[in-house]
Design a protein around this nucleic acid. Structure first.
Lengths: 347, 347
DNA sequence: CTGGTCCTTGTTACCGATAACAGGATACTA
DNA sequence: TAGTATCCTGTTATCGGTAACAAGGACCAG
């Protein structure tokens, strides 16, 4: 059986409470006593029982993370950034992937909420589906949204300016001389809607007609981008330039285009979003819109830890928007600025 | 405050125990009573307190996963496979990344061991460093090793035949006519050592001289492969063909080779191992050795769940070896079998 | 009518920690 | 020397469940 507080107490002839205080560095304890206790605890290889501690204090020192897709390196980066803040603060991570499935997401969140101190969620839900989250928040759930936010929800959040992401990508394609510009749109998430909004706004600014038939819904997974593009190619009438909602879907689309015998960047210009790892090393390096994943994860972790520690923040400080920037590579047909792409050396 | 068993019991005028039995589908309970309890539990939105349950039963229904690098999609795939088995069995995953740091690994494992029902570990430790794990196993820790095993440890494990991985890769380079074949070797893990052994064995079979100066240690991360290759290039005397211990390091090496103005597959032939996602979509598609990541994860999860449930297995069944196979793409200089690489359609 | 079995429910104690309060010892002050 | 402040330690109850045992009632056989 594992060593418990009681074992150490017996060994030393003191009370459990004294041992507990020594272990937790409580101020009300004699320095000598603490030394003695710690020495014995170490000798007996004492490891506190986290479940008992959690039960008594209702603090688990666990942070739950719910992401739509762990195979998307974008989220792997965000997760790693969260970890870099959470671990030094004494938290461990409970990670779940929903595979972009809203039903699974609700289930996961429900299960995690009660065994963690708080959640960081990148939601696959439609922005209208705020009901369940609203209820949880009312009941005191500690949640921070990351990457995909829900405007109607009063909840701390870290994201990029997705409208601007759409504008940057589309504007770039326009500036390259393209006029017939398509969009592979994501699912029902707010992020997808905003990027589409950016796409339309960029077209409108240049007085280009918005053609509904040039917008097709694909989803956010690589496989979905592949399928959507394949169908589009089969139907014909594929535009000369396409802004794809995110990098994985863009890479899927790339695949479909190449399989159809067309050349990405020549026959079809592509721009993605997210700047995922490997995007610069692909057969055709992917032009994309980028923002900091590490900042995103770190800020989210900080916000959540503040929430957990009960340090209230001004509402403004609880909504962090990261600025996006365009990264030009060759999938858009622009001349690539260097042979090796952008900003990849030394990684 | 959250609903507890006691709340429901009070509401219904029964004892906590009856409620507990109803919730857990205990056989010793009247069907009507159970219905009534469940109805009220549902109405009051009861969610059992996992910490209390874990404390009372010493079962947490958590599985800990320790991987060396979450940015390596190889481990993301393994993790997803573990999840596909663990979730239906009622377990949630606590995931940690060690970034190939042995000290961090020990710390993580120590912390996880006591808050989970068991661990699945892909260790960054040297195969000689079995002391701490041996001790944990003696104390009854439930551990399954995955991908990187430690032969001297009597512990269930799932891995591939790493000697054969090295043989397949090196043999292929030999069969392409190369005679001066180098090896970028991993760190001190058993996996690295075995792949190197395979490399040497393949050379020996063809009566090729084993030249120590053609073997350089790099590590297992992409950044390490990049650095090692850059240093090798700076020193000069880079061989015409190199087997790199794994795909991320190979991709890093690729990067360095291209930056030096050389062509991968023409000036330097590369073979990696692991068949990571995107390997087929790179500027120069990566020749590699592959085995099933999903099988690996699923088997590991099954073994661990059996351990947790106390179902002893024969020692033989507890050591699963997956067969590796060569996947030829163009980084080795062989003519690629098709324009789109191998087995990527429809993903 | 008594005693035993079966089925269901309740009682008590405990898992391993912590919070809140009580109390003993020592030292300092008036 | 009594009073009180300070510092440290112990006692008791509690967190929310579950295991083990006790016990009440219905039913049946002898």
């Amino acid at each position: 059986m594992r060593t418990t507080l009681a074992d150490i107490a017996r060994e030393l002839g003191v009370s459990k409470m004294t041992v507990s205080r020594a272990i937790n560095n409580h101020p009300l304890i004699n320095a000598d006593t603490r030394e003695r206790v710690l020495e014995v605890a170490h000798r007996m290889n004492y490891q506190p029982n986290q479940h008992a501690r959690a039960l008594a204090t209702s603090r688990s020192y666990l942070i739950g993370i719910v992401v739509p897709d762990l195979m998307n390196l974008y989220f792997a980066e965000v997760t790693r950034a969260i970890e870099s803040v959470a671990r030094p603060a004494g938290f461990q991570l409970l990670i779940c992937s929903t595979d972009e499935d809203p039903t699974r997401e609700i289930g996961q969140v429900d299960a995690l909420l009660h065994r963690t101190d708080g959640l960081i969620i990148s939601s696959a839900l439609a922005p209208t589906e705020t009901k369940s989250y609203r209820k949880m928040l009312e009941e005191g759930a500690r949640i921070v949204l990351v990457d995909r936010t829900m405007r109607k929800l009063r909840c701390p959040a870290v994201a990029t300016d997705n409208v601007r992401v759409g504008i940057l990508a589309t504007q770039h394609l326009i500036s390259l001389g393209h006029r017939r510009i398509g969009h592979l749109c994501g699912d029902g998430s707010s992020m997808s809607a905003e990027r589409r909004q950016g796409y339309e706004r960029a077209l409108a600014r240049q007085k280009l007609r918005i053609d509904e038939s040039l917008v097709r819904t694909c989803g956010l997974l690589e496989s979905e981008g592949y399928l959507a593009m394949r169908m589009w190619l089969a139907k014909g009438d594929v535009p000369e330039a396409i802004f794809v909602v995110n990098d994985p879907a863009a890479i899927g689309a790339m695949q479909a285009i190449e399989e159809a015998g067309l050349r990405v960047g020549k026959d079809v210009a592509l721009v993605g979003a997210g700047n995922i790892h490997y995007g610069d090393m692909l057969r055709v390096p992917l032009t994309t819109v980028s923002w900091s994943r590490s900042e995103m994860g770190q800020e989210a972790a900080r916000l959540l830890i503040q929430l957990i520690n009960g340090k209230a923040q001004s509402a403004k400080a609880q909504n962090i928007i990261l600025a996006p920037e365009l990264i030009v590579r060759s999938s858009c047909g622009a001349k690539s600025p260097g042979s090796a792409g952008t900003g990849t050396a030394g990684r």
